[in-house]
Structures are given as structure tokens and as C-alpha cells.
Design a protein around this nucleic acid. Structure first.
Length: 293
DNA sequence: ATAGCGCCCTGGTGGC
DNA sequence: TGCCACCAGGGCGCTA
């Protein structure tokens, strides 16, 4: 399930294959994966367009392309969201595409970029082109919160934002408008690393706890990027490789197994509508301020 | 503001 | 062996 570390890994592995390449022909095999414009318009827009830049924002990959006919400045941007099972691969032209391949971009180096997505939740959304989504993209993209890794988000601002949220930590971490890129797996792992209970109210954290959460969030995500993400079942990067952070998971998917810190059985509950794993001993519910036990 | 739900979709799993 | 209910969950739209 691609979250920030997986999306970053896919981008890091697929972009070297795409940078500077021109799309000879675009083949939309399933129109559902193209959002905001028709498959025909999409194919026409991509034909002759060249990949000039790429970036990640939250769980989105952003690609800038320069169109064939227009003036040198005529570029457009496409947002790719992998959702649950989306995959990007470059293969030799003519190689049989895997089942559930919904998009094929034929490149000028004789290879094909394939977008494969078993559950077909993933989307390609074009921004700023005629007949496409509004220039700023879907709501979820417009409203993305700050990036948790990198230099932009300071502890002070993170703590201040937490103090304004009455919801539970788990739900707040999953809220893409609060912080961009965290999904169910990393939310659980971050809370474990911070020794905080998933049901704990975000605005109840002490300074020290907010710092623990901030540090845990950045550490866990950076470690996961370093290990190429987490493969539970489906996920592979742009070169078909699985992520090895799965071996570092402390609680996610480990219901009933011993906590790596204290040996207590990991528990599973539902929080924010999502399966949530935690150690009942290491992550006790934080007592209210002024009522130390 | 926040929580909870159903929906989209397919494949894997476990029960009988 | 086969059948089927159920689960996985990111984002979105809806209701409370």
C-alpha cells in the first residue's frame, strides 16, 4: 500500500527511466484511471510530449511534460496517485503487459511505461490543460498539509498544529490536510515509535510528547525510504523490487505477536475506521494533564 | 470540527 | 473441492 516512503521509492526508481523521454503514443486501456478528461483527450495530449520534471507531494507523484506542438513554455502537469495497488514499470516494447495494466505510454527509447493497478483505485489527473481538471487539481491535492520529511516542517509549527486538533492521534496522522503522505501502516509504526496511544487526543500532548511524535514521524519515514518502503503483499518499486521495511515493522500486522520492546502481545483495534495495531504496555493512554497516576 | 459510514475494486483467506 | 462471506484501505461524499 503505497504511502510516502513507497511513493518516494517508486519515483526515485522510475524517474531515471522517464527523464527526457518523449511519449510516442499513449494507450488508455481502461478509461477509469484517467480523471477529469476523456481517454481520447489524454492520449492526444500525451502524444509527442516529453518528460521534463518530476516531484513527490504527499502520496502523489507529479510529472511535468512539454507538449509537442506548442511553444517551448507549453507544459502540463500530471498527478499520479497509486492508491492501494498501483504500479509503474518500464518494459521493452511489445513485452506482454501484466494483468490489470490500464495505461501504456510508448516511449522514444523503444520501451513502454506501464501503469498497472489490480484494484483500479489509482488515478492519473492532468492539471492545467484544456478540458482537464482545474489548474490546482482535485480537492485532496489542493488541501495537502505539510511534508513530514525535509526541512519545511518545524517542530514548533507541528506542535502548534497538534494543539489545535481535538481528534485522536491516529486519525490526525491519517488526515492528509494535517500532514501529507502518512497512511495506515506508518501511522501505527510512528505512534509505536513515539510510545503514544492511537486514541490519545492530539491536543493533550505535552511538549515532550509532541517532540517524540515529530521525531518518530521523521525517523520512521526516513528509515522506510532508506529500505525502499514496505511490501506486505503487492507493493514493488519502479524496478519491480520489494521494500524491506516490512522486517522493521514493530506493530503493524503483528496482532498477537510480542512487542519488540517489552514482549507484550500486540493488540488490534479499530480507530478512525482503520485497523490499528499497538502495544498496550508501551503505548498507554496518556493521563490528562494534572492527573498523574 | 469531528466521527462514522458506504462506496469504489480485486484477490486472498478462512470457514463450512 | 467448491462456495461464499469477509477483509484489506486511500480518498471522497454523505450524514450525524
Amino acid at each position: 500500500m503505497p504511502e510516502l516512503p513507497e511513493v518516494q521509492t517508486v519515483l526515485d526508481t522510475i524517474w531515471p527511466e522517464l527523464a527526457g523521454r518523449t511519449v510516442v503514443r499513449a494507450n488508455v486501456l481502461h478509461p477509469d484511471v484517467v480523471a477529469g478528461m476523456s481517454a481520447a483527450d489524454f492520449a492526444e495530449l500525451f502524444a509527442g510530449a516529453r518528460f521534463v520534471a518530476a516531484a513527490r507531494r504527499g502520496k502523489y507523484m507529479l510529472f511535468d511534460l512539454q507538449t509537442a506542438g506548442g511553444p517551448p513554455t507549453c507544459t502540463f502537469r500530471v498527478l499520479v496517485h497509486l492508491r492501494m495497488t498501483g504500479k509503474m514499470r518500464c518494459v521493452a516494447r511489445g513485452e506482454e503487459a501484466p494483468l490489470h495494466t490500464h495505461l501504456r505510454l510508448e516511449l522514444d527509447d523503444g520501451r513502454d511505461l506501464l501503469f498497472t493497478d489490480t484494484r483500479r483505485f489509482g488515478r492519473w489527473t492532468v492539471l492545467g490543460a484544456e478540458g482537464a481538471e482545474a489548474a490546482c487539481g482535485p480537492k485532496g491535492f489542493q488541501a495537502l498539509g505539510p511534508e513530514p520529511v525535509g526541512d519545511t516542517l518545524k517542530l514548533k509549527d507541528f506542535a502548534a498544529a497538534l494543539a489545535k486538533r481535538k481528534g485522536r492521534l491516529k486519525g490526525v496522522l491519517l488526515d492528509q490536510t494535517f500532514i501529507a503522505g502518512i497512511g495506515n501502516i506508518y501511522a501505527d509504526e510512528i505512534l509505536f515509535r513515539a510510545r503514544l496511544h492511537p486514541m490519545c487526543a492530539a491536543n493533550s500532548l505535552s511538549r515532550a510528547e509532541a517532540r517524540r511524535l515529530y521525531d518518530a514521524m521523521r525517523t520512521v519515514l526516513k528509515e522506510a525510504i532508506g529500505l525502499g518502503g514496505t511490501t506486505i503483499r503487492d507493493y514493488v518499486d519502479g524496478l519491480g523490487r520489494k521494500g524491506s521495511f516490512v522486517y522493521s515493522l514493530a506493530v503493524y500486522g503483528r496482532t498477537g505477536e510480542p512487542c519488540p520492546e517489552c514482549g507484550t502481545a500486540v493488540e488490534r483495534i479499530i480507530v478512525a475506521g482503520r485497523s490499528t495495531h499497538y502495544c498496550p504496555l508501551c503505548q498507554r493512554v496518556k493521563p490528562r494533564a494534572g492527573r498523574m497516576r
